[in-house]
Simulated assay, not measured.
Amino acid sequence: MEPATADRFDDVTTMLAPKKPAAVGCWCLSYRLEPRENQSLGPRERRDRMRALCGEAVSPGVLAYDAGGDVVGWAGVAPRSQLYTFEHSTKIPHVDDVQAWSLWCLKVRAGHRGQGVARALIAGAVDYAIAQGAPVVESYPVDNRGAKVDTTMAFVGTRAMFEAAGFRVVADTSSTLAGHPRVVMRSA
C-alpha cells in the first residue's frame, strides 16, 4: 500500500480516469468539492485538480499493488473537514466533535476483485490516516444486508465489509445509495 503521491500519478490515472478521455469522470473529487465547482470542471480540469492533490503533503488516497507491482486498487481517504459533501451533509451526521477522517471510496480493478484487495485498501487507508494524525477513520457504506449492490455504486463499500475490517456502526443516516441505507462506521 502506498500513498497516492505526485510520482505515482500515472497509477492514480489508471485507477480513476474514465475509459473515454473526453468523458467527465469523478476522479474521486465529487465528495471533495463544493457542488458548483464540481459541476464546472471539465475532464482536463478534474485530472489537473487530482494531480495537484497528489502533490500536497497529505495524499488524497492510497494505492494497492499486486505482487508484480501493478496498481490494482484505490481508496480515497482524507480529513472529513476537506470533503465538502460530508462536512456539510444534512443526511450523514457528524457523530461528535472528533476530527474524523473519511474513507469514502474503494475501487478495485477488474480481474483483481474477490482477492482481498478491498480489505487491504481499508487497512492501508486506516494506517495512512492514523500515521497522518487522524484520531479516528469513518466510512459511510451501504447496509445492504447481503443484497447485491450495483457495481457502479459499490465504491462506498458495504457494512459487512467494514465490520470485517474492525469498523463499528456509530450512527444511522438518512442517506441512501442504490436503494440501500447508509450508515456511519468508525475504525475501532
Rank of each mutant, 00 (worst) to 15 (best):
L63I: 00
Q82Y: 05
L41M: 10
P43T: 14
G61T: 00
Q39Y: 06
P35A: 03
C54S: 11
G76W: 12
G25Q: 07
K20C: 11
L33K: 08
R32G: 02
M15E: 00
Q82W: 15
L33N: 05
G76R: 13
A64I: 00
K20E: 06
L33Q: 09
R44E: 13
L83H: 13
L53V: 07
K20D: 14
P43D: 03
P18S: 01
G69M: 10
E37Q: 01
S59W: 05
R36L: 01
P18N: 04
C26G: 02
Y65G: 11
P35Q: 01
P21I: 02
S81M: 01
D70N: 06
C28R: 05
P79D: 02
A57M: 12
P43H: 15
D10W: 08
A64V: 04
V24L: 09
E34H: 03
A23S: 09
G68D: 13
W27Y: 02
N38C: 03
C54D: 14
R47S: 11
E45Y: 13
R49M: 10
P35V: 00
L53C: 08
P18Y: 07
R80G: 01
A52P: 14
G68R: 10
A23W: 08
V77E: 06
K19N: 12
K20T: 14
D10C: 15
T13C: 09
R32C: 02
S81P: 04
G25I: 00
D70P: 10
A22P: 13
P79H: 06
E37C: 06
A22M: 06
L29H: 01
P35F: 02
A22I: 11
C54F: 07
R46E: 08
V62W: 04
